[in-house]
Design a binder for these strands. Structure first.
Lengths: 348, 348
DNA sequence: CTGAAAGCGCTTACAG
DNA sequence: CTGAAAGCGCTTACAG
């Protein structure tokens, strides 16, 4: 396993190691003829530069790390793709760290990034523990949070969608359709609570009573869990608020769970019940669901996070401001005007 | 950005660099008292060992690379998780390379792995181009193919599911239900063709005529594309083989596309038409689909690939044999006995 | 445009 | 159990 080194290439050609190194680094001071000789020799000897060795000598590794909340969850993939494209375009290598929702893994990855001397880090911690914040504070590597919002004291900038505003939009949409008994199924995470805030504020602004259902014991991260969560939330929802005419679910899969319950119980969507979600997952667009939802540019979100990080690495202007992405409503068939039948029933 | 080095730690304590290095490498020859002093100093100085520097001095990086066919595709995630768990347990770091179905990216990642001096590589190339094969032949790093089968001449071992056998099982299942007009929708990839072989052989064994539909122009990798592929295949399928009573789709999403077509055209599944897929994706289990499909242990598949690679790295016994995973049938509601009504129609 | 030399931060025999 | 020294494969001023 003793590979060809830069010295072998130099000896082979009778030039100095420095000269070959110049070739490797695209140094302008290099005779065209020499360049070609070296190129040929490298091909002939099948020389592969040793990255580790380069990195000890250089200041930068031109590598950045990106954590993935859960590799089993496709939701994050568009974000990741945006980051990846931007990093590639700028000559950086992207290293993924799979978290699988484990806080310990997050800590490990940050430590790994420090040992590897990554140039930057884009992270998606499930929670902002004291331990993580301390570690991050000690970390000399620029850090950006993606789709997670750090405590304000941390000085870590973030890039996220405006979930609050999105939820407001959804409530406006539903009230615009005439609904007044609108129930929200909460996902108890930072993002979920942000949506809930938007829902509550918006409802109150309309003079409506917020109605929130939550099953704190049930997992709702993975798609199938979330669908089950939505399905299981329905009995409680209907018993506590039997006059509900619209359900705004915190995520699309939860909304699909609601639809599943409806289907199993002869409740017609959207005639009897309007159902909406948030996130605009592919699955929500299937013709079986046609779910109205809240969307934002996931790819762009990732790209902006990457751009922000690059700015920080290059130390361009001091201000590292967080970015909040605007959301928009995706209108589909799962929400509809409060129909007269329902209206009359309520009056009885 | 001048970080603490091993020398700083040594100077701080008045010991030699070698001693600190021994601590870092858990060397047995180290006074317990010294060990504790060093531990304390490292914490106080917040010393983070430089991986790149360690790797130049050592022979091994204890890092292995795993390619991901498409980060937007959740299908592969269970495999990846199996690999990850095994590598973690064995003290290896796993680096993901996202391919996004690009052959160029595959080439780049292998080159990257060589430059980084990874200890091993698990790859999932979309195609085995001459260029890739040549590169791989030159690569000194042990390589295992996961869910892809290299040409036999390449000597690269692989770990894959027995798609051929799985397809046979499915045909047996359908014929067992009385179906004789069974159509297959082909996905034109290595895996898809393997399934088709099983279908064809199995049909012929039963004295039945194989009926294959394929839309070579249409993409069918990503979930939504595959669903559209299945949907679009139906008109041709029904016009060429109007007496079809069962459709065996190459993948679950294609099967869902078939179901979508059926739903839009008043064809009742499974009463009028049995539909089955392959892969056992989560989505196939939703109560809207309840699709009969072929499954295999995806997590285990990844784990076994990792174990095989580890063996190769450790040079345990010479033989590096490929592994073919057994599949099993997942019976759900989308396939049913050929009913009498259909039978009678056929006789007319 | 090119080379000799020092240095990057670590590990690893070799002495003691 | 510990230290001094050589070496890992590269880069980067410094000369010329």
């Amino acid at each position: 396993m003793c590979l060809t080194t830069i010295r072998d290439v130099a000896n082979y050609l009778g030039v100095s190691v420095s000269t070959v190194s110049r070739y490797l680094n695209n140094h302008p001071d290099l005779n065209e003829e020499t360049r070609q000789k070296i190129e040929k020799a490298i091909r002939e000897l099948d020389y592969v530069p040793n990255s580790a060795a380069r990195n000890v000598s250089r200041l930068s590794t031109r590598t950045i790390g990106l954590t993935i909340p859960d590799i089993q969850d496709s939701y994050f993939s568009d974000n990741a793709y945006g980051v990846e494209r931007c990093m590639l375009e700028n000559g950086y290598t992207l290293i993924y760290g799979s978290l699988n929702r484990s806080p310990k893994r997050m800590l490990d990855f940050v430590q790994y990034a420090r040992e590897m001397r990554f140039d930057g880090l884009i992270i998606t911690p499930e929670e902002w523990s004291e331990e993580l914040l301390t570690l991050l504070r000690r970390t000399e590597i620029p850090v950006v949070a993606l789709r997670r919002r750090p405590p304000e004291t941390s000085e870590i900038p973030y890039v996220d969608a405006d979930h609050y505003g999105g939820a407001c939009r959804m409530v406006e949409h539903l009230t615009g359709l005439g609904h007044r008994s609108i129930c929200h199924i909460l996902l108890n995470t930072d993002i979920g609570r942000e949506r809930m805030r938007g829902y509550v504020d918006s409802m109150e602004r309309c003079g409506l009573e917020p109605r929130i259902i939550s099953l704190p014991e049930m997992p709702a991260h993975k798609t199938m869990d979330a669908i089950a969560y939505g399905r299981e939330a329905m009995p409680e929802l209907l018993s506590r608020y039997p006059d509900t005419t619209a359900v705004f679910a915190s995520t699309d899969p939860i909304g699909i769970g609601v639809m599943e319950y409806a289907r199993n119980h002869g409740i017609c969507v959207p005639d009897d019940l309007s159902v909406s979600g948030s996130g605009d997952l592919e699955i929500a667009s299937l013709s079986w669901f046609e779910m109205t939802t809240i969307a934002f540019e996931r790819y762009e979100l990732g790209r902006r996070a990457a751009e922000l990080l690059l700015k920080m690495i290059r130390k361009e202007d001091g201000r590292k401001e967080s970015i909040l992405f605007d959301t928009h409503l995706v209108l589909r068939k799962s929400t509809a005007h409060l129909n007269d039948r329902k209206e009359k029933e309520k009056l009885l």
